[in-house]
Every structure is written in C-alpha cells, then in structure tokens.
Design a protein around this nucleic acid. Sequence first.
DNA 1: AAGTCACTAAGCCAAATGGCTAATTAACCT
DNA 2: AGGTTAATTAGCCATTTGGCTTAGTGACTT
Lengths: 112, 112
Amino acid sequence: MDNNYDSYFQALADATRRAVVERLVQGPATVSELHAPHAMALPTFLKHLKVLERSGLVRSEKKGRVRTVHIEALPLAAAERWIAQQRNVWDGRLDKLQTLAEHIELNDPNPE
Amino acid sequence: MDNNYDSYFQALADATRRAVVERLVQGPATVSELHAPHAMALPTFLKHLKVLERSGLVRSEKKGRVRTVHIEALPLAAAERWIAQQRNVWDGRLDKLQTLAEHIELNDPNPE
DNA sequence: AAGTCACTAAGCCAAATGGCTAATTAACCT
DNA sequence: AGGTTAATTAGCCATTTGGCTTAGTGACTT
C-alpha cells in the first residue's frame, strides 16, 4: 500500500510547507522562486523543501546550478482519501442513527 | 477563518492518533477503550489524546471517573478541503495544458 | 580568470515530541 | 472503611524540528 501518511501529514503540518504546495500546484518553480516570499534564511527554507521531498509530496531535478521543484499529485490524493474515508464512516454512522430515529418515530410517535 | 491547519495535520501525522480517529468515527469511546489496542503506557497514550483534543479534531467529557471522547467532524472536513482545493488547482492546470495541446493540434496538426 | 549566482554542507541552539516510570487523585464497589 | 479502577500529574530522557550563521561548491557571465 505504500502508506507514508506519517510523512505526508507531517509535511503539511507547517505553514511554510503548505505555502510551497499551494505555489507548486500552479506549476513547477525553482528553489529561489519558492524561497523568495518567505522571510527566512535559505538554508532554513531548504530544510522545509527536504521535508517535502522526503515525504514524496514533491520532486525536483537539478540542471546546471538551478533546482526545479514540482508537485507529486498521488501522495496528495492519498492523504485526501484517508480523510475522506474517515468522514465517510462518520457519515454512514449518522445515517444509521437517522434511520433508527425514524423507526422509533413510526413505531411509537409519542414515547415517555 | 479559525484555520489551525498546523494542528490538524500535526495531529494526523502519527499512526497512533490516526488509529484513534479511525476508531472514533465509528462512535464515541472512553479513554481506556481507546487505549486498549495500543501497546504503550497510558500516560503516553494520554499525551496523544491531548494532542488530538488541542487540535480540535476530538472532544471529551468526564463523567464520574470515566472520560468519553468523540470526534469533531468540522475540523476533519476543513483539512480535507484544504487538500481538495490544492488538487483542484492542480487539475485545473492540467486541463489548461490539455486545451492548449488541442489548439496546437488543430492549428498545426503536424509540426516540425 | 575573476566575479557572481544558486544552492549545499556543517554545525549550533532552543523548543517540541514521543516514549517511560512512579506517585496521586477521585470515583465506584463490597 | 478499604480496595480497585480510571485517569491524571510530574518528571526524566533521547530524538526531531525549525530556526540561525558561516563556509563551501559548481555553474554561468563578463
């Protein structure tokens, strides 16, 4: 199943890294471009990129002295699916409670 | 906007805590019940519960000596929506590329 | 060949995380 | 009242995290 949910959610648990993802879904960008909007030292920012890349949410290739980063869609989808799955179960449970409530109403419209 | 994405994703970035969420979407449970499947000391486990509760993904009330925990659906939905939003932008971008490619084909079916 | 540019490496630091044990509190049972 | 049960508090510890600076490395520009 290749489930590294730990690293996916870990990677998303930081505003800087989410901002990078938000930028990258619009298309690839270089390290400098990604760094520009963030008021932190480049090495610090690079650590964030490494976290993203180790998680698999992002990939990069270096050409000359420039490294270009792009998003990886599948892991993002996997993370989303995990949550969707939970909400699904939750909603299913609500439906059952609803059905149960209706049955009670039908069989005994005025309890006590 | 009350956006604590940091704490939502942070809370989900641990297998123990995700297991708790998976359990709780099926309905509320007590601390002991939640702890049972996990081979770790209770105080350690309680820390995980506190992380979940501080994040807002989970709530609990104590009655007598028993604390009952239940899931909170909205934060979970918010986290899901953030990811969905990113994938949405990403997909939109793919569509544009697709459209672009079709245009090129129409105007110049056989380049080179 | 020298200079600039885009990263990368190494190492320091404080705070947070995830584990433990031992001791306490508070409620319920007999 | 005494014992058991459910949870909590406090404190220790190793590792990870997220920030910094300083010092490279290697590629392009002039």
